[in-house]
Design a protein around this nucleic acid. Structure first.
Lengths: 210, 210
DNA sequence: TGTACATCAGTGAACGCGCGTTCACTGATGTAC
DNA sequence: TGTACATCAGTGAACGCGCGTTCACTGATGTAC
């Protein structure tokens, strides 16, 4: 887990309490999961009264929404940086993000924990979504012949699903032994099997059946 | 959402309160998410005192663990039934399970909500895992030449990751428009891009890069 | 077939606790003149 | 440069609530004789 902020000195005016609270929130989520979060504990760990936290975030959902927003921003930045290195690098960056920021990852697509209609969250999601969808369209060739549009879309969803599922299962600790322990290597070894996407334009006979 | 039990008549001795509580738990999770569950509410919805629920489940983690156990059992049954119809059918069954039992799916791989070391849960996980791993090894040809073992394993993880990620994103409601609305069709359209797995025995040049 | 009794499956009151929220208040900082 | 004042960023006490847990108790059922 990589904290998103550097240290601040303790005065009455904290300086960057909002950031500090989000860092502590992330730490609590890593320790106990997103279901066992309380504003009071987060505030206490940041060394301030719990009302100070309420000053920055309207309520618990607001706190979690802010973490999700921060996460989508950071994910977008990571994916944007990887895009130039090609399709596979974006996938590797996605999985690496989930490992470096597991708490953010844990709340970023959780409509039951986060206010998905929050304007700032929506903006951040649009940014990360642009790389996710756009990047795949580029990589697989967006100027596809007819019937290619759905194929391009489903190829993108396949790639997203694969890396997202890999993150989820990996973070849950339910993957079996025998896999590469290095996460970049693991991602490449698994994503290799997404071979069909970049290779052809037409729909094959149903793949892998029998 | 498909309830796993049929109705019971109300007597002092309920008849199948354990089942009824799990059904209500599933309903609460679908409505508000696994983070907003309380024993008292589940008991109240089942029409019994909250102490009656404590009689059947030691605590909240026990309640959620029982749901996860039930889920793994049902998933194993579904996957076992689909296995004969081939590799792709197993994936379709997996996604269909997540849609029919979203509450179960939401807790089945959540070490922060569930006691993963619970013996009954472990047994149920072993059962579902057997189809998941074993099925893939069969479908891709387990008698692979050398260097094929890791390849077979990662192919299985790729398939699992893809369908698992698809479930997660679909249930979260974050998939973009333009995709097939029928879930079986969606799964097939996406899983098609996992083409590399069933087709060859040797590792290709790095797939999809560029 | 009756009866006694153990066990199973529930009730309902009481507990202490941590929660989110509200409130009046205060210390530190920035700005107008 | 100094002072007044508004605003920002916190404190700490108090609230009512729902929570999980514990406890003594009871109704229904099953079994031994």
């Amino acid at each position: 887990m990589v904290p998103m902020t550097s240290v601040t000195h303790d005065r009455y005016h904290h300086g960057d309490l909002r950031r500090a609270l989000l860092d502590e929130l992330a730490a609590v989520i890593v320790e106990r999961g997103p279901s066992h979060v309380s504003i009071r504990e987060v505030a206490s760990r940041a060394g301030v009264s719990h009302t100070a936290a309420s000053y920055h975030f309207a309520d618990k959902a607001g706190l979690l929404t802010a973490l999700a927003t921060q996460g989508h921003g950071a994910l977008a930045t990571a994916l944007e940086a990887a895009r130039a290195e090609g399709f596979l690098a974006v996938g590797v960056a996605y999985v690496r993000f989930s490992v470096e920021h597991p708490a953010h990852f844990a709340v970023m697509w959780r409509p039951d924990l986060v206010r998905m209609d929050d304007p700032e969250l929506a903006a951040a999601r649009t940014r990360s979504g642009a790389v996710l969808y756009g990047g795949v369209a580029e990589a697989t060739g967006s100027a596809a012949p007819r019937h290619g549009a759905l194929d391009t879309l489903t190829a993108g969803i396949a790639a997203w699903s694969l890396v997202h599922g890999l993150c989820t299962l990996h973070l849950a600790g339910v993957l079996p032994g025998g896999l590469p322990s290095d996460v970049d290597e693991l991602t490449r070894a698994v994503a290799v099997h997404l071979g069909a996407a970049g290779r052809r334009r037409h729909r094959p006979d149903v793949a892998g059946d029998r």
